[in-house]
Simulated assay, not measured.
Amino acid sequence: MSQTTTTPGPLLAPPAGAQSTVTRTAPASTADREIKRRRVLEILDAKGQDSLLLTTHTALTWYLDGSRVHISLAGDPIAALLVDRDGDHLVTFNNEAGRMAAEELPAGVSLHTVPWHGNLHEAAAAVGRSSGPAGSAGTPAGTPLAEAAVATELRAARQQLLPAESARYAHLSGELAGIMTDVLSTARPDTTEFELVSALAGRVVAAGAEPLVLLCNGSSRSDFRHPLATHTPLGRRAMAVVCARRDGLVANITRWVRFDAGTPEELDAESRIAAVEADIFDATVPGARLDRIFGEIKAAYVRHGFGAEQWEQHHQGGPAGYAGRDPRVTAAATDTVVLNQPFTWNPSGPGVKIEDTVQLTESGVKVLTVDDRWPTTTVNGLRRPVTLQL
């Protein structure tokens, strides 16, 4: 394993005579990053440790404040980061170092390299082995705390979005809502599911984001809650779902379109699922525990005529941000809701679902995935999307 600490200098300089092609700079906010580092140091203090090794997409993109640490969307991160009391040390493969330094590295983070065939985690752990006593839990001197050991604490540290990341999230969410309006407005009954999600994917990528989830069901496949697209035509109505990531943050949205007036049963179910969501929003308040909100979700399905078993047919969503759900709400989730925390709840029933990315503010739930061109109705004082009728 070779290891090189890089600073601005020859390793990262472009070849002589070459023109710079850098079109991206790390989005990180210095002010936000200082707060994030302080939060991690508080975790280390509580655990009696001197360093922490971050290895997952969620933790890395949060702590680096929006750096892209992936190549394959389905692959592991191409970087690992050691946070210790002396500073932040990012280790990446040698063939990734130039791009990371030019476009993704926040100020104040030291960059180290390992051969493309090396072990990122071992290299990152080795960065901090030169100093530091053994931890109180009996950890060998210099061995960093594993991310998994403080997963709950890290999740709490990223719950409350900071000003710069809140602005980035709102911008992404608004763009995603606009993309949905643009694409679904052009749909026709003979448009296939693949054609629709292809158009959505193209627009998402053009916006500088990564489409993590693309779902679509036409009227013949409306029973499926997670409908991967097929060559089936949309027919008389359809649902589209997109989860898109930019600068580490993941925005989630579901929209419906139909080509007739809808049946009375469909219109009734759409109204009732929006009422379920409104009850979830009412339960999403500072200090509420997720398991208690989960209880309210189950009760809301019964209250609005869907039956006690509907919550079992699909996950219900939960906190959002640097993961699609962080975490999915269950009876075992005991995290406490805080101000400025983002959420994506997604209650669903037979042939109906509602989903937007929102943020809990001092004035209540604020919907982020908003496009004023999309038709809405008022539900419990909040404008909520209805099916687009073409």
Results as ranks from 00 to 15, higher is better:
231 H>A: 15
338 V>W: 04
245 R>F: 04
158 R>V: 05
267 L>A: 06
43 I>A: 02
165 E>F: 00
92 T>A: 08
310 Q>W: 06
96 E>C: 04
13 A>E: 13
164 A>W: 08
297 I>H: 02
326 D>L: 05
28 A>C: 06
139 T>S: 06
371 D>K: 07
167 A>K: 10
120 L>P: 08
225 R>I: 06
240 A>V: 03
206 A>I: 07
191 T>V: 05
184 L>N: 02
169 Y>V: 01
124 A>W: 00
125 A>N: 05
154 L>E: 03
203 R>A: 10
160 Q>K: 12
136 S>K: 14
240 A>M: 05
45 D>G: 02
33 R>I: 03
274 A>N: 10
378 T>C: 06
155 R>G: 05
258 R>M: 06
373 R>C: 10
324 G>C: 12
162 L>H: 02
338 V>T: 14
10 P>M: 13
248 G>L: 03
147 E>F: 06
116 W>E: 14
44 L>E: 01
203 R>G: 04
171 H>L: 12
225 R>K: 04
198 S>D: 14
271 S>V: 02
33 R>A: 07
107 A>K: 14
282 D>F: 07
358 V>M: 08
299 A>K: 11
152 T>K: 10
188 R>M: 11
354 I>V: 13
59 A>H: 02
355 E>H: 08
221 R>Q: 08
11 L>Q: 15
86 D>E: 15
286 P>E: 09
199 A>S: 10
310 Q>G: 04
63 Y>C: 04
315 H>Q: 07
153 E>M: 09
84 D>P: 08
49 Q>H: 13
29 S>H: 03
296 E>L: 12
184 L>P: 07
384 R>V: 02
204 V>C: 05
24 R>Y: 05
121 H>Q: 15
312 E>R: 14
91 V>W: 00
123 A>M: 05
292 R>L: 14
200 L>I: 12
52 L>H: 03
177 A>I: 01
119 N>M: 01
359 Q>T: 11
123 A>I: 03
234 L>H: 04
242 V>P: 01
330 T>W: 08
357 T>C: 09
52 L>C: 10
65 D>S: 08
389 Q>Y: 15
270 E>M: 07
97 A>C: 01
359 Q>W: 04
184 L>G: 01
99 R>I: 02
95 N>D: 15
97 A>Y: 01
358 V>H: 02
316 Q>G: 05
124 A>F: 13
5 T>R: 15
91 V>S: 03
162 L>K: 02
338 V>N: 00
98 G>M: 01
117 H>T: 14
165 E>D: 11
259 F>R: 10
325 R>F: 15
57 H>R: 06
25 T>Q: 13
176 L>H: 10
66 G>S: 09
